[in-house]
Amino acid sequence: MLVGHSTWKFNQQPAIISTGVVGGPFEANGKIANDFDLLHEDLWLEQDSFEQAQQKMLEEAAEIAMDKAQISKGQIEFFIGGDLINQITPTTFAAKTIGVPYLGLFSACATSVESLALAASIIDNNGANHILTGTASHNAAAERQFRYPTEYGGQKPPTAQWTVTGSGCALVGKSETGPIITSATIGKVIDMGLTDPFNMGGAMAPAAVDTIIRHLHDLKVDVSHYDLIITGDLGKIGHEASFDLLVEQNIGIKKEQYLDCGLLIYNDEQPVHSGGSGTACSAVVTYGHILNRMKNGELKRVLFVATGSLHSPMSVQQKETIPCIAHAVSIEYKAGDVT
């Protein structure tokens, strides 16, 4: 059901029935390594290319999610997913392996929430019973495409971020208990004229703020309605800049209730500059760490806002600005017996 201008409120209780969270070697040394279902020792995963490694992680995460929920491929109607690589080929090849009707998406690092929002909406409208959503990213594959070869000795500025190597899948279906998706707000493309591709956090912050404000406005709720507002990968700069913007809006947001996945995933000693990024960043942190905290009873209502910067290497070379987007879903935990 549409409420306000661009928010869906879900009545039929589409929920995240199970998740699969996979990570790479860097993530294994991070702060939330224990919240991963599977961690890999090396970046190649015994594949011939980084892109194939990314595909394999997505397949693994999907399989883990399906195993946990005891749901087979035959019971899933659709697979909605995307990634950062050109023409989202790793996701497509994974979709081939998963063998479920496929809706491919692109919204860079906001893909995880975009797929959740669409899945919840379709299920809420009785368009499906189970939908598998997911995304994956690979540090070397992303660096190769967007920036420089992995072994290139170029100096990255302190505003740069580190693409997460990992995959997060969420299986969505109707449920009485567990993490229920209660609403979703679709983001607008926001562009504040920033051009530095090494400072994506700074570019994405206004998009996150815009979506959060519109969400609260559409649902007519206060920011205190949520125990936690977690952004996808704003990183240090984006997190601070967006918090400043939110404070300006006078909504009464508190520092403790505003976190960022990119800042949660890695240790301070790891050379990630401004924090983590990539489609998998928001997915692995939320589907693993945050959902675990909800299951523990620590958090009841969370607003999950994934942010994406929608530039391409060519658009940057052509001196275009960096357009960004942020999608939001609200998740509410109903206690009960959930895997």
Binding site: T159, G193, G202, A205, A241
Partner: peptide, 18 residues
């Protein structure tokens, strides 16, 4: 003006290169 205002905020938060 909105963009200019944001860019000022962003610049303030941007980690300067040493």
């Amino acid at each position: 003006p909105k963009a200019q205002h944001y860019q000022a905020i962003q610049k303030k938060n941007e980690t300067k290169r040493p």
